[in-house]
Design a protein around this nucleic acid. Structure first.
Lengths: 218, 218
DNA sequence: ACCATTAGGTGGTCAGACCAGTGAAGGAAG
DNA sequence: CTTCCTTCACTGGTCTGACCACCTAATGGT
């Protein structure tokens, strides 16, 4: 009675939804899908992968959650620029109820930013420095663009993604108070001299007051 | 021709799936659902909320994605301990298909471990130090237990969770080369003296060689 | 009292149907 | 010819009903 199973294939035996998710993701990579490109329709994917439309829908919904694709009703689904994370809004909503989580989040974000700065110091190219100089020269300083460049220069995709997720969370309930201009000058100098310790020191010095005390002068 | 719509209710007009998601989440809060408690079944929720089962499924899948509930086939869905960030799991899954990502993963893990060590230096209690002394004294040194204690002492739940995820994935394809015993002695000394800089220095000296030099794998 | 069987509930999946937007093809009016 | 509008095919959104595989607990025979 009990040996009835074993549907022929010995291995996989995972949720169709999870399989489909991986499959579609792999397909996106293999087809070299650029941001803005259109994905096949739900029905076509279902037929091509030999699964039901509902399973395809759940997989696509997950990809949308991860911010990898964008859905336009009546049109289709499109590959999205990485970095715009839809899931952030939802997650933030849930996290709002936990004070401790908020504190941990703020601290973690801050620490990972320090790591990214240190990495950027070691790996930044000459172009990175020029780009940053341009950004700092142009007042008011665009904090987001400054740090995006730093993250790019750090050259660690995983750490960058974690940062973007945390950053999105934090932004949704704790607006970012910008550093003083002098802070950027110092960071830039450290980056140019490839001095990770100096960058970390500047970051700590500029961050502690707002982390500890809360509201402070801009 | 164009004024045909307006299904009676003037406002909402959002995806049923999104509405259902919020609805179920609110319901969980109002019913004071404790971790481990069972949620109503898909079919019951569908009937109670007046929507289709597929919409309920998409909403529940999202909650699962967020780590708020757990699904047990054949049994039901249960409220889960908050704080389990499922999304990072998924993120890692995707990154694992890429060689470059593996190098980034190893580096990120290493860096986050440094952060945890630094935090632990600042926040460790006397008991933490005693615990660590016991672990170090007992050869061969149990690396996992040593670091678990450090992570605990660091007192940042979010960072700890990220580390556990990274650690788990890293272990699955890159066995951990343990530190020399002398390394643990030095780390312990730094922790006892609450000297983050020293701890970080020891960590870098013992580990970063493999991350820095390799030209981003092949 | 024990254990195998059974029945009902639950999530997992699929297929088909219909709705509601979108955009392009195609025809009528200018 | 151009312009405008209708039409139609296609897409995502949703609902329904039907199975399946799985788990639990009640059942019933030994």
């Amino acid at each position: 009675m009990k040996e009835a199973k074993e549907r022929g294939h010995g291995i996989k035996e995972e949720n169709v939804y999870a399989e489909t998710l991986k499959h579609i993701h792999r397909m996106m990579a293999e087809d070299n899908l650029a941001p803005g490109d259109k994905l096949p329709s739900e029905r076509e994917l279902a037929e091509r992968l030999g699964v039901g439309r509902s399973s395809v829908r759940e997989a696509l919904r997950a990809l949308e959650f991860l911010g990898l694709i964008e859905t336009r009703r009546g049109e289709g689904r499109y590959r999205r620029e990485v970095g715009s994370h839809q899931l952030i809004d939802l997650l933030a909503m849930f996290l709002l109820e936990n004070e401790r989580a908020k504190a941990d989040l703020a601290e973690t974000k801050r620490l990972i930013e320090r790591l990214l700065l240190e990495l950027a110091c070691r790996r930044r190219s000459a172009e990175d420095v020029n780009e940053l100089k341009k950004i700092v020269r142009q007042k008011p300083i665009d904090f987001a663009r400054f740090f995006e460049t730093v993250v790019e220069a750090a050259g660690n995709v995983l750490l960058a993604r974690i940062w973007r997720v945390l950053s999105g969370f934090a932004a949704s309930f704790a607006p970012e108070p910008p550093l003083a201009d002098a802070g950027y000058e110092q960071l830039l100098a450290a980056l140019e001299r490839q001095d990770p310790a100096e960058a970390a020191a500047v970051w700590e010095a500029n961050g502690l007051r707002r982390c500890r005390n809360g509201p402070d002068i801009v």
